[in-house]
């Protein structure tokens, strides 16, 4: 556990953050957390299972609408809405995933994209239930979470709890089975694993956590719109994960910090946000192929190796003298 001291540090910084920064940046921090959870859930499919889901916003959007509709139309309290969002997104992922896991590679990506767009059009067209492109307004969080700071703390604890659960899953035999499916699906069949079934289970779990992230979004933004399901939204976790690094657990979260912070910062003085993020992604892909996190992990390894060499050199010199 000594390796993870910095996690405690990050958490303490996150706890005192609202006292240091203004309200605008507290909003940005909430966004970082929600989109970070969304990206981490995406990476369960991309980084761990080795398939590119280009329709992950479907589950994010379904989660957002489940919480939004329950709160607006039935006044269900938020703590009950969030698990409901996970279940709704999980059911949706089960139905779509059933077909998607039959494919791999580009075909998997295209089919997830198609299902994502299908979800978008359903929400867009089903005016009487979802409000269509008017979206859903007046998703007001309960009084004790009304202020930006309160909602920030609430989000921080929910996201932290979700990350701990996903972390456990990634280190469990199931998580390692995902790695083996990524590395060598054929071999995995021959050690007795029903690869398709395991891919489906993972797809559903990833969808559930995307749904949880979506559920957090509505009360934060006070409203939701069908765009939450659109392919732009599916691209967000892809970009975040590429920037942060898909092979480390925290890569997508690092990506969310960079992406969301940059967006808040850059859109403050220019409308050229897509150009900016495009340049960032080109830079990362060309010069940091493992993402920012992968890049720094590599540096740390090299520095440690050098330190060891130096240490070994010194001790042998002593022996000689």
């Amino acid at each position: 556990m000594k390796r993870y001291w910095w996690l405690g540090l990050v958490f303490i910084v996150a706890l005192i953050l609202p006292f240091v920064i203004g309200e605008f940046w507290v909003h940005v921090a909430v966004e970082i957390l929600i989109l970070g959870l969304f990206a981490v859930s995406f990476n369960m499919i991309f980084g761990y299972m080795g398939q590119l889901s280009f329709g992950h916003a479907a589950y994010y959007g379904v989660g957002a609408y489940a919480t939004g509709l329950l709160m607006v139309k039935a006044s269900v309290p938020l703590p009950i809405c969030l698990p409901a969002s996970m279940i709704a997104a999980g059911i949706c992922a089960l139905i779509f995933g059933y077909f998607c896991v039959r494919l791999t590679g580009i075909y998997f990506a295209i089919l997830t994209l198609a299902f994502g767009q299908l979800m978008y059009y359903i929400i867009f067209q089903w005016y009487s239930f979802t409000g269509g492109d008017d979206g859903l307004q007046g998703i007001i969080p309960p009084d004790f979470l009304f202020s930006a700071t309160a909602y920030y703390y609430f989000t921080l604890f929910v996201v932290a709890a979700a990350l701990i659960v996903i972390w456990y899953i990634s280190e469990s035999p199931f998580g390692y089975t995902m790695r083996t499916i990524r590395e060598n699906p054929d071999r995995t069949r021959f050690i007795g694993i029903n690869v398709k079934r395991y891919m489906l289970i993972n797809f559903v779990i990833a969808g559930m956590f995307a749904g949880l992230a979506g559920g957090l979004w509505g009360p934060f933004n006070r409203s939701i719109a069908p765009d939450l399901c659109n392919w732009h939204q599916s691209g967000t976790p892809v970009f975040m994960t590429v920037i942060g690094g898909p092979l480390g657990f925290f890569g997508p979260m690092v990506g969310s910090v960079i992406y969301t912070f940059l967006m808040a910062f850059v859109t403050g003085f220019t409308e050229y946000w897509p150009l900016t993020i495009g340049l960032v992604i080109i830079f990362v892909v060309l010069f940091m192929p493992g993402g920012v996190l992968g890049f720094f992990e590599e540096r740390v390894k090299i520095i440690r190796a050098r330190a060891l060499e130096v240490g070994a050199g010194e001790s042998s010199e002593k022996e000689n003298s």
Partner: peptide, 26 residues
């Protein structure tokens, strides 16, 4: 036909976990 990015130990452990039906453990 192995798992090139896992360690030797993890390669073997995975086969054993599958045999013990523990791969669904989350």
């Amino acid at each position: 036909n192995i798992y090139p990015r896992l360690t030797t130990y993890e390669n073997v452990r995975q086969a054993i976990l599958a045999q013990q039906k523990k791969t669904i453990n989350l």
